[in-house]
């Protein structure tokens, strides 16, 4: 039960390590998207520090979304997904392992990179702390929800844009909670309530999202 989980995580990490573009592309994307905002709107510190929470959260959300599209793709193409489906191992644990693996190569490094970008957008220190904490809890939720979309669209040739249409509306609560928490941090208010809410969303996602993903994978593989 646990073995299959850790084996899946280890395998995906190894693949990501070998194929370093998996690791670097989401981060590069994140960095470039954030850079576009000062260029497109204004370089003024007042404007940017107001925009920073939303910009960083939206960019993190898009980076996760674009990378989650390929979560099951290679397994589907080389036939190992079918092997997993017919094996007696619990699919729930495999999916959970894949999601954790995905978070470790996208959401987590992204969280580590964010302070640099936050400083470049003139976000105050209190806001950066809130941003880091919310990203730490929030990016796994993004991976979990994204996996549902990836599972449903894995058999389709052009899933890229479709997965955005399916998944982005479901990202709304995470985005709202994240940016509100950062705003509260900037204003010097407590954001513990936001973190608790996000934490409960994470727990719910951990329990339910792999179920939906597993069901989606079975459908995609059978067609």
């Amino acid at each position: 039960m646990h073995n299959i989980f850790f084996a899946t995580v280890r395998r995906d990490l190894k693949i990501a390590y070998r194929n370093s573009s998996d690791l670097l592309n989401p981060l590069a994307f994140f960095f470039i998207v954030v850079t576009l905002f000062p260029l497109g709107i204004s370089p003024s510190p007042q404007v940017l520090s107001g925009l920073a929470p939303g910009v960083l959260w939206v960019a993190a959300l898009l980076a996760t979304l674009l990378s989650v599209d390929g979560l099951f793709k290679s397994d589907y193409e080389d036939g190992s997904l079918e092997q997993i489906l017919i094996s007696p191992q619990p699919l729930f644990m495999v999916v959970l392992g894949k999601v954790v693996g995905h978070w470790l190569v996208t959401g987590f490094p992204l969280t580590l990179l964010t302070p640099v970008l936050a400083v470049m957008l003139f976000l105050p220190v209190d806001g950066i702390i809130a941003l880091e904490l919310t990203l730490l809890i929030g990016t796994p939720i993004l991976s979990l929800i994204g996996a549902i979309g990836a599972g449903l669209t894995v058999g389709l040739k052009r899933g890229g844009l479709l997965i955005s249409v399916l998944i982005l509306p479901l990202y709304v609560p995470v985005l709202i909670l994240g940016t509100l928490a950062v705003q509260a941090g900037v204003d010097g208010q407590s954001f513990a309530g936001h973190l608790l809410w996000m934490g409960s969303l994470l727990v719910m996602g951990l329990g339910l999202a792999p179920l939906a993903t597993a069901a989606g994978l079975r459908i995609s593989a059978s067609s």
């Binding site: 549902i148 449903l152 058999g155 899933g159 989606g216 459908i219 995609s220 067609s223």
Partner: peptide
């Protein structure tokens, strides 16, 4: 987007 009708029905139900 899904060609297989039966699979499309189930996928939509999950979504």
């Amino acid at each position: 987007a899904m060609e297989n009708k039966e699979a499309a029905g189930k996928a939509c139900a999950i979504l």
